[in-house]
Nucleic acid binder design. Structure first.
Lengths: 117, 117
DNA sequence: AAATCATTTCGTAATTTTGCGAAATATAAA
DNA sequence: TTTATATTTCGCAAAATTACGAAATGATTT
């Protein structure tokens, strides 16, 4: 049996956040909420997006489940805004992931120590 | 008819890259290839990951399709490494996305200009 | 020419995601 | 109390993702 290790928590976190970001509707919402640093309502968003109300609601639910946004009930509206704390954590997680490489310019073409023949 | 605009190319790019990153196997591969700034073979990876050879091959194909890695045929091996150019573009794209917010600490609790009542 | 080797492609099954409209919920207004 | 409003949940269908083993590919060794 070859050993088949599990993924580290960091790898799982990155993959899960990436999944939450993997739909244009959800990117749009996060971009809007983080850029303006403000909040908005499902009803405002539905006019700007090519999906229906129930579909939008599902995307908001997913973002909420992923911890990236939070909803504040303000009847009959629900005000959504960025979850600042988790958003900042996500920022750090991704920044670390994207900048892991040694700064050197070593590339495939210049490294042949793995070339078999 | 309420106007239902399409997504900007930037939003689509972000969503597509996020989709490519949305599986732990693919995060693991990218982490390894970018961190070491080196290359590796499908056969080396299969022992480190809890998936079979054909499944791993599919994940590599997806990463290649997304432009994040490239394969160099070196029979009977195929050497995979990061696509440096696209990886750097991705880095910039995500960094911009994650840092779009005005640096202020304004939060949901302090912005009530949208509060209805 | 036959056997071997690393890898991919194919066919298929199980699961997840996405999307919609109808119905439900919960509050405010008439 | 009825009506209207904003939003979600439900039930369902279509499409995409994930995974596997078997077969194919393409080059090398025997």
């Amino acid at each position: 049996m070859t050993n088949k290790p599990q993924f580290t928590p960091e790898v799982m976190k990155l993959a899960n956040v990436a999944k939450a970001l993997s739909h244009p509707v959800r990117i749009y919402i996060l971009q809007k909420l983080s850029k303006m640093n403000s909040c908005c309502y499902s009803g405002d968003l539905v006019d700007e997006l090519p999906v229906g109300r129930s579909t939008l609601s599902q995307h908001l639910k997913e973002l909420k489940y992923a911890g990236l946004i939070q909803g504040e009930i303000n009847p009959p509206y629900i005000k959504y805004c960025i979850n600042r704390k988790n958003w900042n954590e996500t920022k750090e997680l991704f920044t670390a992931f994207l900048n892991e490489n040694a700064s050197g310019e070593m590339s495939c073409e210049t490294t042949d120590y793995l070339m078999h023949k």
